[in-house]
């Protein structure tokens, strides 16, 4: 069975002659899994997401979706297959939440068409799912950071992707928003959505991921089911600081000294 997304011997650097950010990286993301990418700052986690999206192109090696190279797909089809929740997104314009989430329908529309009633229904459903239903007509510029992150998630859900890519989804969230987001994701994952996310918080991986990828120095230094890879030794080696993993109520908590 071919993986949903795979990196085959991918090397990528920003600009010719620059030191590669990712070097000869290979990785398979199976359908129905939730994979968390962990690793120190600057290791190429976000770059990996942008390569998965097809926005960045590898200097050598291939990124494949369903076994076909990404560049063989029309953009629109990629947009129907994958959605990105960026870490932050700034806009000076006060789009309403609904108008903003409706942009997710672009990959399904002819190039000059505008969203119709069915698109609006899908967008509203996604907005309800992230709990912003009552704020549907509010300007996004008036929302809090946590609410804006939820708008980005709603947009990604309204895109109805097979693979959801998330870049540090919890980095700007307070505890309540973080818990809300993780519950929502866990629910979606349980219903079969494939998720690939980067995070700086090992606990986030422990809470929702089925698989973990550890990155160091532009390469994968460990990957597999969370039970096998998420160990104190591996995390210590990845981050270069000694850590321990404690079990509290069946939950894994990373301790540092």
């Amino acid at each position: 069975m071919t993986a949903l997304l795979s990196f085959d011997d991918v090397t990528f650097g920003y600009g010719p002659g620059a030191r590669p950010v990712l070097e000869r990286l290979s990785l398979d993301i199976e359908s129905g899994t939730a994979t968390a990418i962990l690793g120190p700052n600057g290791v190429g986690k976000s770059t990996l997401l942008h390569l998965a999206l097809g926005w960045l192109r590898a200097q050598s090696g291939l990124v494949l979706l369903d076994g076909r190279p990404l560049r063989a797909y029309p953009r629109r089809l990629l947009g129907q297959s994958m959605a990105l929740v960026p870490q932050v997104e700034r806009t000076p314009f006060d789009y309403s939440v609904l108008d903003y989430v409706l942009l997710a329908r672009a990959p399904y529309l002819a190039s000059l068409a505008m969203p119709g009633a069915e698109d609006e229904r899908i967008a509203r459903e996604a907005i309800d799912e992230v709990g912003l239903g009552p704020q549907c007509h509010r300007a996004i510029t008036t929302l809090s950071g946590g609410e804006r992150q939820n708008v980005l998630l709603a947009r990604a859900l309204a895109q109805q992707p097979r693979l959801l890519l998330m870049d540090e989804p919890t980095s700007h969230l307070d505890l309540a928003h973080k818990v809300g987001l993780l519950h929502l994701l866990r629910d979606r994952i349980a219903r079969g959505m494939t998720v690939l996310l980067t995070t700086h918080e090992p606990e986030v991986a422990a809470a929702i991921a089925t698989h973990v990828v550890l990155m160091r120095g532009g390469q994968v230094c460990g990957s597999g089911p969370i039970a096998e890879v998420f160990t104190a030794d591996n995390l210590s080696a990845t981050y270069g600081v000694p850590v321990q993993i404690a079990q509290i109520d069946g939950r894994q908590v990373v301790l540092w000294t």
């Binding site: 947009g79 960026p86 942009l103 672009a106």
Partner: peptide, 23 residues
């Protein structure tokens, strides 16, 4: 006038616009 809805998408980051199927 005909491309006006695309303007909303183009006002976002390039990578986000790309992820929404735009060029």
């Amino acid at each position: 006038y005909r491309m006006r809805w695309r303007l909303n998408i183009l006002s976002l980051d390039d990578s986000t616009a790309f992820s929404l199927g735009a060029a």
